[in-house]
Structure formats: C-alpha cells, structure tokens
Write a protein that binds this DNA or RNA. Structure first.
Length: 359
DNA sequence: GGGATTTGACCGCT
DNA sequence: AGCGGTCAAATCCC
C-alpha cells in the first residue's frame, strides 16, 4: 500500500515538473536570447530533452500503475497507424487462423521450449510512434498480419515461449538475424514469430537489439508467465532493475538474452503528453521516424547530449547535466526541484532503454 | 535419449 | 539473380 502512495506521489511530482518546464520554457528562452545564442540553444535543447524525458518517466510510471487497456487486433489491421498493441485476451478471437504454408505440412515436430536466461527482468519502457510503412511493405510475405518492432537493450521475458528456427546473415548488417516462432505453433497453430537483430552500432553499451514481431499469439500461453509481471509497480522496477546489467558474454548470449522480449506492451498513457504530434513532447523536433532517434539512450545520455559537442566531457550523472544554474538565474528553485526529480528518474534510467515501434 | 540449437539448403518474392 | 524467411537434418547439451 505504501508502494502505491509513493508511486502516486512520484507521478504527481514528475507531472508537476513537466508542467513547470512547459510554463517556464518561453520566458526562459526569452531571457537567454540576447547575449549568448549558444546558451539559448543549450536551454532549448535541454528543455526539450527534459520535457521528453519527463514525458517518458510519466508514461512508465503510469504504465506501472494501470493494467493495459484491451485493444483489439482489429484496430491494428484496420488502422495501421494507430497505436494498438496486441493482447492475450485478443488472441482468442483469432484462434481460427490456419497455417497456410505448404511447408508447414511437412513438419511433424514435438514441442520445444526456448530457455530464457535467468537474468531476465521484466522492466521496460515502451515507446510508441507512428510508422509510415505497413507490415505488408516491410515484410512482403506477411499480407494480413499485424507486425511491430521493438528496440531494446534490456533483456526480459516477454511471457511467451519461443523456439529458434533459423539464423541468417542479412545484407548490410554486421550481426546475424535470429528467427523464432511460437513454441506452440504445432500444438495450437499459433502463427506468432519474431526475429532478433542486433543493431550495428557496436559502440552501444549495452548492445541494442531490434526485435520484429509478426502475427498475434493465438496460443493463449502468455497469461501464466505474465501474471504478476504486469502488475509490477514502479517501486518494484526501481528495486529490480537498477542493478541489472547485461552480461557481456558475446553475441550469441546477447541475442539469446534479447529474445524473450515483452510482446504485449500496454498502451502508453497520458494522452496529452504522449500524443505523437509535434507538440510539447517534441517541441523542436519532428516525430522520430527511426528508432535510433529515440531510445536506446539512457536518460543521462539524453540530458547530457547537449553538453557534449566534442565528447570531451561526459557528465557522470543527470544531476551534473543540469547543473548550469548560473545562466538560469531566477529559476534556481524550480530547477533545483527539477534536478531532484530528474535524479530520481535517472536512478532507473538504465533499465528504461527499450522502445517499441508499431508498424 | 530427448529436447533445443545450429546451419546449409530450399522457397518465394522482387 | 539476389535476398529474406523457413525448413529440417545434424549437432549439441542436459
């Protein structure tokens, strides 16, 4: 119960800071406009990033507070540009899907289960955005199924059981792509598949993985694994994720760790804040069209980016990133509050490095 | 020995 | 023809 109270207080606090920045952004930028244009740019950039990150934090907090609103797969297919994650509840309505490939007839295999790494932690950040391409355009062969992609640095169990059925070197990529299908494809005719591709930016730490899901699960096997996880709250996230660090055991282990990613992200909340339009959320930017522009970057990176034109200095914490109060005279009180709030947020930022793209 | 993964071959699409 | 996705025999692992 205390958890809930603390969480709600945290949400209120972050929301207040968000509104605070929104309100004070214009006068602040006006103040710092004349003498030093670079300072103005810095302030602009910082405020923009602060708004976005607070928005993210609110979304995560709210997501932990409320169960996922059921969204039917129909909306995915009818309105591909609308954010609408599949859900186990919706899977029942699609149980009549019939395996269509001739090749599937040849297969007579027994049930096998992919064993996820023991370090799996269900902490995630889901990011939604519009995507200009349909699954048909992306996949070619998938003409009637929903498709969505996730970028993550955090391995966790997505509640489903997968069996790897292939691996391929894809043109223009450094790492191989691994292919997985639902373990219960044979038993339940579940057509869900996914493939995991480590992103080429080898300087990423931790490595990032692009996971593309195809087809909704119709096997109804996720409930057991998801029970308890979906109700996890921010406190649990704080307790469970802060120390989680991916084991650098090589590509194979990394891919294996990334394979069981959450497949049923609840919709992001806070409609006025996460409205996917060039609004206060992205006041100086277009809506990102590729995942690299969003996460994965830690909040520390987001806030520090504006200070790192030459990579000469990497602030060690979010707090230090916003320590330039000298040019923000008159806002020190509010900025102190913002700083405190962001410090709180940054404490869990390392685990909020997953984004989701619905296509 | 049974189950999971690997890997080369195959298939369909562009 | 090239590419991505899938199959299934071979191999690995517990």
């Amino acid at each position: 119960m205390a958890f809930v109270a603390d969480r709600e207080a945290a949400v209120r606090e972050v929301a207040q800071v968000y509104e605070l920045i929104k309100l004070q952004q214009p006068p602040l930028l006006l103040h710092s406009q004349q003498p030093q244009p670079s300072t103005t740019q810095l302030a602009q950039s910082l405020l923009s990033k602060a708004l976005r990150t607070l928005n993210v934090a609110l979304s995560v907090m709210k997501q932990q507070q409320q169960p996922a609103a059921p969204v039917t797969p129909t909306s995915v297919k009818a309105e591909p540009h609308q954010f609408s994650p599949p859900s186990p509840a919706s899977a029942d309505s699609q149980a009549a899907i019939v395996p269509s490939t001739a090749a599937s007839k040849r297969r007579q295999k027994k049930k096998k289960v992919f064993q996820p790494p023991s370090s799996i932690v269900d902490c995630r950040f889901q990011w939604k955005l519009l995507h200009g391409r349909s699954s048909v355009a992306m996949e070619g062969k998938k003409k009637t199924s929903s498709s969505w992609a996730t970028v993550t640095a955090v391995p966790y169990d997505d509640g489903y059981e997968w069996r790897k059925y292939g691996e391929k070197k894809i043109n223009g990529t450094f790492f191989t792509r691994s292919y997985f299908r639902c373990t219960y494809k044979d038993d339940a005719g579940c057509q869900a598949t996914k493939h995991v591709q480590q992103m080429d930016n080898i300087s990423d730490d931790p490595p990032m993985f692009h996971v593309t899901y195809n087809n909704d699960h119709t096997c109804n096997t996720s409930a057991k694994a998801n029970t308890g996880r979906s109700s996890s709250n921010l406190a649990a996230l704080l307790a469970g994720c802060c120390n989680m660090k991916q084991e650098p055991t090589g590509h194979a282990a990394a891919v294996a760790a990334a394979m069981n990613m959450k497949q049923e992200p609840p919709p992001l909340l806070l409609p006025p804040l996460v409205d996917l339009q060039p609004s206060a959320c992205f006041p100086h930017e277009q809506i990102p069209q590729c995942q690299e522009l969003l996460f994965p970057v830690s909040m520390e990176q987001q806030f520090c980016g504006a200070f790192r034109d030459d990579d000469s200095e990497i602030p060690s914490a979010t707090g230090s990133c916003i320590s330039g109060e000298t040019s923000w005279d008159g806002y020190s009180g509010d900025m102190r509050r913002l700083k405190m709030t962001l410090s709180m947020i940054s404490s869990v930022s390392s685990s909020w490095t997953t984004s989701t793209i619905w296509i």
